[in-house]
Design a protein around this nucleic acid. Structure first.
Lengths: 213, 213
DNA sequence: GTCTATATGCGGATAGAC
DNA sequence: GTCTATCCGCATATAGAC
């Protein structure tokens, strides 16, 4: 269990089993393994044999569930985006309607970053892989991701319209710099001194301090 | 010249010719091409044939100058770090001795980010590749990079000691979040509306606003 | 020094047994 | 459904001509 090619442990299988059938569960197990290995090894470093081993099966067997390695990549990318977007929107929507726009922004920052830092394999893998994936896959995914980008743009514009942001701020640049601060975190964060929530607090304080009037 | 495999144009050959001998210049041309292709294609996506084409030679010829693909990778990583560190320190050192620590920090932020955004192929390639490179190469490079990390730590600690930073700021987290904001920029920046200097201004203003008391 | 031709190994994908 | 065996293409690396 401390082996180099450890299979998925409880912490990696966070999501529901996605339909009760055995087949659906196996498929899900493979997808979870792919997300884990892609997060750890990156797009090109992850071999099908690694993914199969992490899912406790063999490389040839993957093809019963997925048409190709690229199909696996695309599903992981999509799921990673959906999880980050889903969690962020869920927590923002849970705020009461009269929450100041700046506090909505703070909640979004915490939600996005905590999703990444809690080692959600799909989200981390998605962030790490996107820039290294073949162009057709990247182009397709960027289209989906644009919706999430627009969501952040709206958060910032709302705060701007409410007069809560600094003068001279370029909202497009600020948005990319802010998301960069969050998205780079898989490259350096390791479990340790600070919890995901504590890092998220630091990030929210830093970002808001930099953005607000 | 507008071909898919365009060779290096003037903008890519920024550095000195590094010794007058023809051999040294050829070697440099290959290294420049490698930096360019690694930046564009990422660690795994860059093939020796691509690098050779960009250097206007053939894959087999590279081995006259470099022992292996990995040797090429390591030189690009090292040079990228040296350029970012060199340029940042140079510009900070050029400040007068009585410059407030917070302004030294602002200068460092601008210098690092402008180096990346001006499409310095070595620095961008280094940033993009590091997380995707085989572990031995990565470990070796991280050791070298630790010196640059310490430099940033000192900048932040000096500002903290001078009482210029917010209370409750965790300097380690702040440093990684700040560098993430800068290092993610190769993933999204394209020449266009805002110049590197304008983006750097936005980043410096954002970061300082988030850090200072 | 630079080229072409080729050896080699690896990893994705497929076929077919069970 | 899952396995083993194998095909195949690709990219690094080497050999040797020029």
């Amino acid at each position: 269990m401390a082996g180099k090619q450890a299979t998925l442990d409880a912490a990696d299988a966070v999501q529901p089993d996605n339909g009760g059938s055995k087949s659906a569960r196996t498929r899900q197990r493979i997808l979870d393994a792919a997300a884990k290995v892609f997060r750890e090894e990156g797009y090109a470093g992850a071999r099908l044999a690694d993914i199969a081993a992490a899912a406790d099966t063999k490389a040839g067997s993957l093809y019963y569930y997925f048409a190709s390695r690229e199909a696996l990549v695309e599903e992981v990318l999509d799921e990673g985006l959906d999880r980050a977007f889903g969690e962020t929107r869920r927590r923002v929507d849970a705020l009461s309607a009269d929450t100041p726009t700046i506090d909505r922004l703070a909640t979004a920052i915490r939600a996005h970053l905590e999703t990444v830092l809690k080692l959600d394999n799909y989200t981390s893998a998605s962030i790490r892989m996107l820039g290294h994936v073949p162009e057709p896959i990247r182009a397709r995914h960027m289209k989906r991701q644009a919706v999430y980008g627009a969501y952040w743009r709206e958060l910032l514009e709302a705060a701007g319209a409410a007069g809560e942001l600094r003068d001279g701020l370029d909202l497009s640049a600020a948005r990319m710099l802010l998301l960069g601060m969050l998205n780079w975190s898989p490259e350096w964060y390791r479990r340790g001194r600070l919890s995901p929530e504590e890092i998220a607090d630091q990030a929210a304080a830093m970002a808001l301090g930099g953005l607000r009037k």
